[in-house]
Design a protein around this nucleic acid. Structure first.
Lengths: 112, 112
DNA sequence: ATTAGTAGTAACCTCTAAGTAACCGGTATA
DNA sequence: TATACCGGTTACTTAGAGGTTACTACTAAT
Protein backbone atom coordinates (compact mmCIF):
# COMPACT_ATOMS: atom_id res chain seq x y z
CA UNK A 1 0.00 0.00 0.00
CA UNK A 2 1.33 3.40 -0.96
CA UNK A 3 0.13 6.82 -0.01
CA UNK A 4 1.26 9.39 -2.49
CA UNK A 5 2.20 13.04 -2.20
CA UNK A 6 -0.84 14.09 -4.15
CA UNK A 7 -4.22 14.01 -2.50
CA UNK A 8 -5.91 13.23 -5.80
CA UNK A 9 -3.82 10.10 -6.27
CA UNK A 10 -3.65 9.10 -2.62
CA UNK A 11 -6.03 6.17 -2.12
CA UNK A 12 -6.89 7.27 1.40
CA UNK A 13 -7.72 10.84 0.41
CA UNK A 14 -9.64 9.57 -2.59
CA UNK A 15 -11.71 7.27 -0.46
CA UNK A 16 -12.25 10.03 2.08
CA UNK A 17 -13.79 12.09 -0.67
CA UNK A 18 -16.48 9.42 -0.79
CA UNK A 19 -17.06 8.71 2.84
CA UNK A 20 -15.57 11.81 4.40
CA UNK A 21 -18.59 14.04 3.99
CA UNK A 22 -20.66 15.13 6.93
CA UNK A 23 -23.63 12.93 6.08
CA UNK A 24 -22.60 10.10 3.75
CA UNK A 25 -21.60 7.53 6.39
CA UNK A 26 -24.73 8.30 8.39
CA UNK A 27 -26.94 7.94 5.32
CA UNK A 28 -25.34 4.63 4.39
CA UNK A 29 -25.90 3.38 7.90
CA UNK A 30 -29.52 4.55 7.91
CA UNK A 31 -30.17 2.65 4.72
CA UNK A 32 -28.40 -0.42 6.12
CA UNK A 33 -29.85 -3.64 4.77
CA UNK A 34 -33.23 -2.04 4.10
CA UNK A 35 -34.88 -0.61 1.03
CA UNK A 36 -35.99 2.75 2.23
CA UNK A 37 -37.83 5.76 0.91
CA UNK A 38 -36.65 9.33 0.69
CA UNK A 39 -39.23 10.57 3.19
CA UNK A 40 -38.34 7.85 5.67
CA UNK A 41 -34.65 8.78 5.49
CA UNK A 42 -35.64 12.37 6.08
CA UNK A 43 -37.55 11.29 9.19
CA UNK A 44 -34.63 9.23 10.48
CA UNK A 45 -32.32 12.23 10.04
CA UNK A 46 -34.33 15.32 10.91
CA UNK A 47 -31.16 17.39 11.08
CA UNK A 48 -30.42 17.07 7.38
CA UNK A 49 -32.31 19.29 4.95
CA UNK A 50 -34.03 17.66 2.00
CA UNK A 51 -31.83 19.58 -0.40
CA UNK A 52 -28.67 18.18 1.15
CA UNK A 53 -30.16 14.71 1.49
CA UNK A 54 -31.17 14.80 -2.16
CA UNK A 55 -27.69 15.85 -3.23
CA UNK A 56 -25.92 13.29 -1.09
CA UNK A 57 -28.15 10.50 -2.41
CA UNK A 58 -27.36 11.57 -5.95
CA UNK A 59 -23.63 11.52 -5.14
CA UNK A 60 -23.86 8.10 -3.54
CA UNK A 61 -25.72 6.76 -6.56
CA UNK A 62 -23.09 8.14 -8.94
CA UNK A 63 -20.40 6.59 -6.77
CA UNK A 64 -22.12 3.23 -7.13
CA UNK A 65 -22.81 2.83 -3.43
CA UNK A 66 -26.60 2.93 -3.53
CA UNK A 67 -29.38 2.10 -5.97
CA UNK A 68 -32.21 4.49 -6.70
CA UNK A 69 -35.39 2.55 -7.43
CA UNK A 70 -38.24 4.54 -8.89
CA UNK A 71 -41.50 2.63 -8.95
CA UNK A 72 -43.90 3.07 -11.86
CA UNK A 73 -46.83 2.94 -9.49
CA UNK A 74 -48.63 5.94 -8.22
CA UNK A 75 -48.29 7.71 -5.90
CA UNK A 76 -44.72 8.50 -6.81
CA UNK A 77 -42.32 6.48 -4.70
CA UNK A 78 -38.55 6.39 -4.75
CA UNK A 79 -36.61 3.86 -2.76
CA UNK A 80 -32.95 3.45 -2.01
CA UNK A 81 -30.80 0.50 -0.99
CA UNK A 82 -27.12 -0.34 -0.85
CA UNK A 83 -25.26 -1.83 -3.79
CA UNK A 84 -22.70 -4.59 -3.23
CA UNK A 85 -20.04 -1.90 -3.13
CA UNK A 86 -22.04 -0.04 -0.50
CA UNK A 87 -22.44 -3.21 1.54
CA UNK A 88 -18.70 -3.90 1.30
CA UNK A 89 -17.97 -0.44 2.65
CA UNK A 90 -19.85 -0.95 5.89
CA UNK A 91 -17.25 -3.13 7.67
CA UNK A 92 -14.62 -0.51 6.82
CA UNK A 93 -16.76 2.25 8.33
CA UNK A 94 -17.24 0.12 11.41
CA UNK A 95 -13.48 -0.29 11.80
CA UNK A 96 -13.05 3.45 11.48
CA UNK A 97 -15.74 4.00 14.11
CA UNK A 98 -14.18 1.43 16.43
CA UNK A 99 -10.78 3.03 16.17
CA UNK A 100 -12.33 6.42 16.86
CA UNK A 101 -14.22 5.18 19.88
CA UNK A 102 -11.18 3.60 21.49
CA UNK A 103 -9.01 6.58 20.62
CA UNK A 104 -11.42 9.08 22.15
CA UNK A 105 -11.94 6.85 25.17
CA UNK A 106 -8.16 6.96 25.77
CA UNK A 107 -8.14 10.73 25.26
CA UNK A 108 -10.84 11.21 27.88
CA UNK A 109 -9.29 8.68 30.26
CA UNK A 110 -5.94 10.45 30.10
CA UNK A 111 -7.60 13.64 31.33
CA UNK A 112 -9.05 12.11 34.51
CA UNK B 1 -21.69 -0.11 16.79
CA UNK B 2 -24.11 2.76 16.34
CA UNK B 3 -24.05 5.64 13.94
CA UNK B 4 -26.13 8.50 15.23
CA UNK B 5 -28.18 11.17 13.50
CA UNK B 6 -25.81 13.86 14.62
CA UNK B 7 -22.47 14.22 12.93
CA UNK B 8 -20.89 15.48 16.12
CA UNK B 9 -21.85 12.33 17.98
CA UNK B 10 -21.42 9.89 15.12
CA UNK B 11 -18.18 7.95 15.68
CA UNK B 12 -17.49 7.74 11.95
CA UNK B 13 -17.95 11.45 11.34
CA UNK B 14 -15.94 12.22 14.46
CA UNK B 15 -13.07 10.05 13.28
CA UNK B 16 -13.28 11.55 9.81
CA UNK B 17 -12.68 14.93 11.38
CA UNK B 18 -9.28 13.54 12.37
CA UNK B 19 -8.29 11.65 9.29
CA UNK B 20 -10.60 13.22 6.73
CA UNK B 21 -8.48 16.25 5.99
CA UNK B 22 -6.71 16.63 2.70
CA UNK B 23 -3.25 16.07 4.14
CA UNK B 24 -3.42 14.28 7.50
CA UNK B 25 -3.32 10.69 6.22
CA UNK B 26 -0.50 11.56 3.86
CA UNK B 27 1.47 13.24 6.64
CA UNK B 28 0.99 10.29 8.97
CA UNK B 29 2.19 7.96 6.24
CA UNK B 30 5.24 10.14 5.50
CA UNK B 31 6.20 10.06 9.15
CA UNK B 32 5.65 6.30 9.26
CA UNK B 33 7.99 4.61 11.72
CA UNK B 34 10.59 7.35 11.42
CA UNK B 35 11.45 10.38 13.50
CA UNK B 36 11.48 13.09 10.95
CA UNK B 37 12.13 16.82 10.77
CA UNK B 38 9.83 19.56 9.57
CA UNK B 39 12.03 20.43 6.63
CA UNK B 40 12.28 16.79 5.57
CA UNK B 41 8.49 16.46 5.60
CA UNK B 42 8.28 19.59 3.51
CA UNK B 43 10.67 18.02 1.01
CA UNK B 44 8.69 14.78 0.90
CA UNK B 45 5.51 16.72 0.22
CA UNK B 46 6.46 19.67 -1.98
CA UNK B 47 2.79 20.30 -2.77
CA UNK B 48 1.93 21.29 0.80
CA UNK B 49 2.78 24.80 1.95
CA UNK B 50 4.70 25.23 5.17
CA UNK B 51 1.78 27.10 6.66
CA UNK B 52 -0.59 24.20 6.11
CA UNK B 53 2.01 21.62 7.12
CA UNK B 54 2.63 23.53 10.32
CA UNK B 55 -1.06 23.72 11.11
CA UNK B 56 -1.72 20.06 10.35
CA UNK B 57 1.20 18.98 12.52
CA UNK B 58 -0.17 21.10 15.36
CA UNK B 59 -3.60 19.48 14.93
CA UNK B 60 -2.13 15.99 14.85
CA UNK B 61 -0.16 16.71 18.01
CA UNK B 62 -3.27 17.98 19.81
CA UNK B 63 -5.14 14.89 18.67
CA UNK B 64 -2.45 12.75 20.25
CA UNK B 65 -1.37 11.12 17.00
CA UNK B 66 2.15 12.50 16.77
CA UNK B 67 4.87 13.71 19.14
CA UNK B 68 6.68 16.99 18.60
CA UNK B 69 10.25 16.71 19.82
CA UNK B 70 12.16 19.96 20.13
CA UNK B 71 15.88 19.48 20.77
CA UNK B 72 17.73 21.92 23.04
CA UNK B 73 20.74 21.78 20.76
CA UNK B 74 21.54 24.37 18.18
CA UNK B 75 20.82 24.72 15.37
CA UNK B 76 17.14 24.53 16.12
CA UNK B 77 15.70 21.14 15.25
CA UNK B 78 12.17 19.90 15.57
CA UNK B 79 11.32 16.29 14.98
CA UNK B 80 8.07 14.42 14.72
CA UNK B 81 7.09 10.80 15.18
CA UNK B 82 3.91 8.80 15.66
CA UNK B 83 2.44 8.11 19.09
CA UNK B 84 0.96 4.69 19.90
CA UNK B 85 -2.43 6.07 18.88
CA UNK B 86 -0.96 7.23 15.59
CA UNK B 87 0.59 3.84 15.00
CA UNK B 88 -2.72 2.11 15.75
CA UNK B 89 -4.44 4.26 13.16
CA UNK B 90 -2.26 3.12 10.29
CA UNK B 91 -3.88 -0.31 9.76
CA UNK B 92 -7.27 1.40 9.65
CA UNK B 93 -6.05 3.83 7.00
CA UNK B 94 -4.67 0.92 5.02
CA UNK B 95 -8.06 -0.81 5.10
CA UNK B 96 -9.70 2.37 3.89
CA UNK B 97 -7.17 2.63 1.07
CA UNK B 98 -7.64 -1.02 0.14
CA UNK B 99 -11.39 -0.66 -0.03
CA UNK B 100 -10.98 2.46 -2.16
CA UNK B 101 -8.56 0.78 -4.53
CA UNK B 102 -10.80 -2.21 -5.14
CA UNK B 103 -13.89 -0.02 -5.42
CA UNK B 104 -12.32 2.26 -8.01
CA UNK B 105 -10.88 -0.70 -9.87
CA UNK B 106 -14.43 -2.08 -10.20
CA UNK B 107 -15.72 1.32 -11.28
CA UNK B 108 -13.14 1.54 -14.05
CA UNK B 109 -13.59 -2.09 -15.09
CA UNK B 110 -17.35 -1.60 -15.45
CA UNK B 111 -16.73 1.16 -17.97
CA UNK B 112 -14.61 -0.97 -20.31
C1' DA C 1 -61.96 23.23 -3.99
C1' DT C 2 -58.48 22.69 -0.72
C1' DT C 3 -55.31 20.62 2.09
C1' DA C 4 -51.57 17.44 2.83
C1' DG C 5 -47.93 14.20 1.39
C1' DT C 6 -44.03 12.73 -1.80
C1' DA C 7 -39.72 13.74 -3.95
C1' DG C 8 -37.43 16.72 -5.02
C1' DT C 9 -35.22 21.85 -7.37
C1' DA C 10 -33.67 26.85 -7.46
C1' DA C 11 -31.72 30.84 -5.58
C1' DC C 12 -29.20 32.55 -2.26
C1' DC C 13 -26.10 32.71 1.90
C1' DT C 14 -22.33 31.46 5.22
C1' DC C 15 -18.46 29.40 7.09
C1' DT C 16 -14.25 27.10 6.98
C1' DA C 17 -10.42 24.32 4.90
C1' DA C 18 -6.91 25.29 2.24
C1' DG C 19 -3.80 28.22 -0.67
C1' DT C 20 -0.50 32.42 -1.51
C1' DA C 21 2.85 35.44 -0.29
C1' DA C 22 5.38 37.87 2.71
C1' DC C 23 7.72 38.03 6.87
C1' DC C 24 10.23 36.64 11.39
C1' DG C 25 14.12 35.47 14.83
C1' DG C 26 17.63 32.57 15.30
C1' DT C 27 21.97 30.09 13.32
C1' DA C 28 25.62 28.95 10.11
C1' DT C 29 28.51 29.91 6.19
C1' DA C 30 31.19 32.59 2.83
C1' DT D 1 28.63 41.90 6.05
C1' DA D 2 25.22 39.39 3.66
C1' DT D 3 23.25 35.34 2.21
C1' DA D 4 20.82 31.26 3.09
C1' DC D 5 18.77 27.55 6.01
C1' DC D 6 15.43 26.24 9.89
C1' DG D 7 10.81 26.20 11.68
C1' DG D 8 7.62 28.41 11.59
C1' DT D 9 3.69 32.96 11.82
C1' DT D 10 0.64 36.65 9.88
C1' DA D 11 -2.52 38.63 6.72
C1' DC D 12 -5.21 38.14 2.85
C1' DT D 13 -7.96 35.20 -0.72
C1' DT D 14 -10.64 31.64 -2.64
C1' DA D 15 -13.37 27.43 -3.55
C1' DG D 16 -16.62 24.51 -2.11
C1' DA D 17 -19.43 22.03 1.42
C1' DG D 18 -23.29 22.62 3.60
C1' DG D 19 -27.55 25.39 5.24
C1' DT D 20 -32.18 28.14 4.60
C1' DT D 21 -36.15 29.24 2.47
C1' DA D 22 -39.26 29.05 -0.93
C1' DC D 23 -41.02 26.74 -4.75
C1' DT D 24 -42.54 22.89 -8.15
C1' DA D 25 -45.36 18.84 -10.22
C1' DC D 26 -47.90 15.19 -9.03
C1' DT D 27 -51.44 12.45 -6.28
C1' DA D 28 -54.76 11.36 -2.54
C1' DA D 29 -58.03 12.33 0.73
C1' DT D 30 -61.87 15.52 2.67
Amino acid sequence: MRFIDNPFQCPVTRTMSIIGGKWKPIILNCIGDKTIRFGKLNQLMPAISNKVLSKELKDLELLGLINRLESDELPQRVEYNLTDSGISLMPVLIEVANWGNSHFAKQIESKL
